[in-house]
Simulated scan of single mutants.
Amino acid sequence: MKIDIWSDIACPWCYIGLTRFDRALAAFEHRDGVEVTLHSFQLDPTLPDAYDGTETQYLAQRKGLPEASVKEMFGHVSAAAASEGLTMDFDTLQVANSRKAHRLLHAAQQADPTGRLAHDLKLGLFRAHFTDGESVSDADVLVRLATEAGLDAGAARTALDDEGFEARVAADVDAARKLGISGVPFFVLHEKYGISGAQPLEVFTQALAQVWDEVHPEPAFKTLTIPGLRQDATGPACGPDGCA
């Protein structure tokens, strides 16, 4: 079963949503048969590499909200994150363009087609951005995070300005637009079912089971009701070891 996930590193609900999804998948009995692919999305592609201001100031200006309202929203998000064991520090968060980080994620996907490396790097980027107050547009930070996840340092640095990986980021963004995705995180199960947002763990758990059963249906044998036919017995038949 294939699952595609669109998200942005600068999105706190994407961090929470991926964490909840990971927990559901880890407990899913058929998890080894699930292929997960991470896709790029940018909430604000116009951001400079370094924004001269706080996250509170940035969102207040962008959304036209009082800073007090933005801080109240941060409190709600931080509480949701804490319930998943995540720490989000919006006071030290560095507002930055995530484009280079997305290129790096595509380099990780190319280096490890299983998606494990890209997944580990994505989590590292989330932690750096929301917990550690690091800039996800800083080349040295990005290369360090990539090598910690298992990507070659030279390949990581080259990927930051690689036009080929930039084209893959653009292709992901375009695919999201064609699917009508305007917010993230967004999960697509088996190229057929969409789940929008950081849903509760139970939603992901039930969705995995439901779609898996649809993709891998059990044989639909029906019981015949014929006089004289015993349902607990078999008639004469042949098998690999002979006939009886």
Results as ranks from 00 to 15, higher is better:
residue 167 A to N: 11
residue 149 A to H: 07
residue 188 V to W: 09
residue 244 A to S: 09
residue 3 I to V: 14
residue 169 V to G: 11
residue 85 G to W: 02
residue 239 G to I: 08
residue 130 F to W: 03
residue 209 A to F: 09
residue 60 A to K: 02
residue 143 V to M: 06
residue 14 C to T: 06
residue 125 L to N: 08
residue 66 P to T: 04
residue 189 L to N: 05
residue 184 V to E: 01
residue 176 A to Y: 03
residue 195 I to Q: 07
residue 145 L to W: 03
residue 241 D to H: 08
residue 75 G to E: 01
residue 124 G to P: 10
residue 107 A to G: 07
residue 148 E to V: 12
residue 238 C to R: 11
residue 70 V to P: 09
residue 37 T to E: 03
residue 55 E to S: 11
residue 115 G to P: 14
residue 47 L to N: 00
residue 141 V to H: 12
residue 16 I to S: 03
residue 11 C to E: 04
residue 111 A to R: 09
residue 126 F to W: 11
residue 186 F to W: 06
residue 50 A to R: 13
residue 243 C to S: 01
residue 99 R to F: 15
residue 196 S to N: 10
residue 161 D to L: 14
residue 16 I to W: 05
residue 175 A to K: 15
residue 18 L to K: 15
residue 84 E to A: 13
residue 58 Y to K: 09
residue 27 A to K: 07
residue 220 A to H: 07
residue 3 I to C: 13
residue 166 E to G: 14
residue 189 L to R: 03
residue 177 R to S: 13
residue 136 V to A: 01
residue 117 L to I: 09
residue 88 M to I: 07
residue 214 E to Q: 01
residue 2 K to W: 02
residue 107 A to F: 04
residue 81 A to Y: 13
residue 60 A to L: 02
residue 12 P to F: 10
residue 68 A to K: 06
residue 81 A to R: 04
residue 6 W to R: 04
residue 56 T to K: 08
residue 67 E to Q: 13
residue 200 P to M: 07
residue 84 E to P: 04
residue 74 F to H: 10
residue 231 Q to F: 12
residue 185 P to C: 10
residue 6 W to E: 01
residue 240 P to I: 06
residue 184 V to R: 01
residue 57 Q to S: 08
residue 12 P to E: 13
residue 27 A to N: 12
residue 82 A to D: 00
residue 42 Q to M: 08
residue 197 G to E: 15
residue 73 M to H: 04
residue 235 G to E: 00
residue 8 D to I: 07
residue 170 A to T: 12
residue 239 G to M: 05
residue 127 R to M: 04
residue 192 K to M: 10
residue 113 P to H: 05
residue 71 K to R: 14
residue 216 H to K: 07
residue 229 L to Q: 06
residue 76 H to Y: 12
residue 112 D to Q: 12
residue 36 V to A: 03
residue 7 S to H: 13
residue 58 Y to N: 08
residue 45 P to G: 02
residue 136 V to I: 13
residue 104 L to A: 09
residue 1 M to I: 11
residue 4 D to Y: 08
residue 23 R to M: 07
residue 235 G to Y: 00
residue 90 F to P: 05
residue 121 L to D: 08
residue 137 S to G: 12
residue 99 R to N: 14
residue 238 C to L: 03
residue 62 R to S: 11
residue 57 Q to P: 07
residue 8 D to K: 05
residue 116 R to N: 15
residue 244 A to P: 00
residue 32 D to M: 11
residue 29 E to K: 12
residue 244 A to K: 00
residue 79 A to R: 04
residue 116 R to A: 15
residue 114 T to D: 10
residue 16 I to F: 10
residue 108 A to S: 08
residue 10 A to C: 10
residue 180 G to N: 07
residue 63 K to W: 02
residue 195 I to D: 10
residue 133 G to E: 08
residue 207 A to F: 00
residue 2 K to T: 14
residue 61 Q to N: 03
residue 8 D to F: 08
residue 87 T to A: 04
residue 160 L to Q: 05
residue 241 D to K: 03
residue 71 K to P: 00
